[in-house]
Amino acid sequence: MSKRLVAIGDSFTEGVGDDDPGYPNGVRGWADRTAEQLAAREPDLRYANLAVRGKLMAQVLSEQLEPALDMRPDLVTLYAGGNDLMRPSVDIDTMMDDYDKAIGRLVESGATVVIFTGVDGVEDALFRKMRGRVAIYNEHARVIAARRGAKVVDMWAMRQLRDRRMWAPDRLHLNPLGHNEVAIEVLKVLGVDHVLAPHELGPRATVSPRDRRAQNLQWSKEHAWPWVRRRLRGESSGDHILAKRPSLGPV
């Protein structure tokens, strides 16, 4: 059983979308949920979460990799690159070469390493346009994992994550239901028993084309345009955010 867990990455791993004022940075997330289940079976578990929202792949690796290695973790989770894929242009091959090297260092340190594929956005008109980029990212991730001996949480195959009811209003981040589903899958990949249960949401409500257009317009005003404005100003949602759990500690 792992005794030192370090999670590194961006908003996905920080837990954005799973709002909870009782947790650092006001968010919980799949990583905290996973750590809680692991700690129930290993009371001596120590957990750090270095992830910060808005970070690009290069930032995650340059800012979080060395601190993570210094903690001599038994188990590391790493997801990065999602913010890069949303940029107007991205060199996926070069980005994943850097990812490969980082994963290699983590594996060589003796840690069990868990990485992720991206979610399939086929059912969302905006994110459907990114499917090609995400598919290339995912193939790189699978090849890297096979070569390096890392474990893969295949979110592309998690059909339940296609349901918008698993996502926060910004459509970029999972809500508590979605984070719970990811935690379940991480624990499954690790082969760890747990008490988390998936949510049965039932059939989705039928939305008329008119209502869908109104929802999309409201989303654009509240979430899409503010995101675009930050990009144009060279700002990030994580500019003034610190890691929620910067050092190993009890869960």
Rank of each mutant, 00 (worst) to 15 (best):
173 H>L: 03
139 E>A: 09
250 P>H: 11
243 A>C: 13
82 G>K: 13
146 A>N: 09
195 V>K: 03
248 L>K: 10
107 V>N: 03
81 G>T: 07
177 L>G: 05
19 D>R: 15
131 R>E: 03
4 R>D: 05
9 G>S: 10
36 E>T: 06
21 P>F: 12
144 I>A: 08
4 R>I: 09
115 I>E: 07
109 S>P: 14
175 N>S: 08
78 L>A: 07
3 K>A: 02
74 D>C: 07
249 G>V: 06
130 M>C: 12
74 D>M: 03
122 V>G: 14
233 R>D: 02
149 G>K: 15
162 R>E: 00
200 E>K: 10
37 Q>N: 07
151 K>M: 00
69 L>W: 01
147 R>A: 12
202 G>H: 01
124 D>F: 13
84 D>W: 10
63 E>R: 15
94 T>F: 11
140 H>R: 03
220 S>V: 11
21 P>T: 13
172 L>R: 12
234 G>I: 12
190 L>M: 08
163 D>K: 14
37 Q>K: 06
158 M>L: 12
185 E>T: 13
113 V>Y: 11
58 A>S: 15
89 S>A: 15
77 T>Q: 01
120 D>E: 05
51 A>R: 01
26 G>A: 10
167 W>K: 04
82 G>N: 08
76 V>Q: 02
154 D>M: 11
195 V>T: 06
140 H>G: 00
2 S>Y: 12
217 L>P: 01
38 L>E: 01
93 D>N: 09
34 T>F: 06
9 G>D: 02
237 S>W: 13
243 A>K: 10
196 L>A: 04
106 L>K: 05
127 F>A: 06
167 W>Q: 02
104 G>T: 06
210 R>S: 02
221 K>E: 00
208 S>F: 05
77 T>P: 07
139 E>D: 11
25 N>Y: 13
227 W>Y: 07
43 P>K: 12
156 W>T: 13
33 R>E: 00
13 T>C: 15
148 R>A: 13
131 R>M: 04
91 D>S: 14
123 E>W: 12
175 N>R: 04
157 A>Y: 14
69 L>E: 00
61 L>D: 04
146 A>R: 14
246 P>D: 00
147 R>D: 05
99 Y>A: 01
17 G>Y: 12
72 R>M: 03
203 P>M: 02
58 A>P: 15
229 R>C: 10
66 E>D: 15
165 R>F: 13
92 I>F: 14
176 P>T: 03
133 R>F: 04
200 E>S: 09
206 T>L: 00
68 A>R: 13
228 V>Q: 13
248 L>D: 05
104 G>D: 03
88 P>M: 00
2 S>E: 00
9 G>F: 08
116 F>N: 03
46 R>I: 00
129 K>F: 11
192 V>Q: 03
110 G>F: 10
146 A>Q: 11
174 L>V: 05
51 A>L: 03
211 D>C: 12
125 A>C: 06
50 L>P: 10
127 F>Y: 13
170 D>S: 09
217 L>V: 02
85 L>E: 02
220 S>L: 08
188 K>N: 07
40 A>T: 03
230 R>F: 07
244 K>G: 14
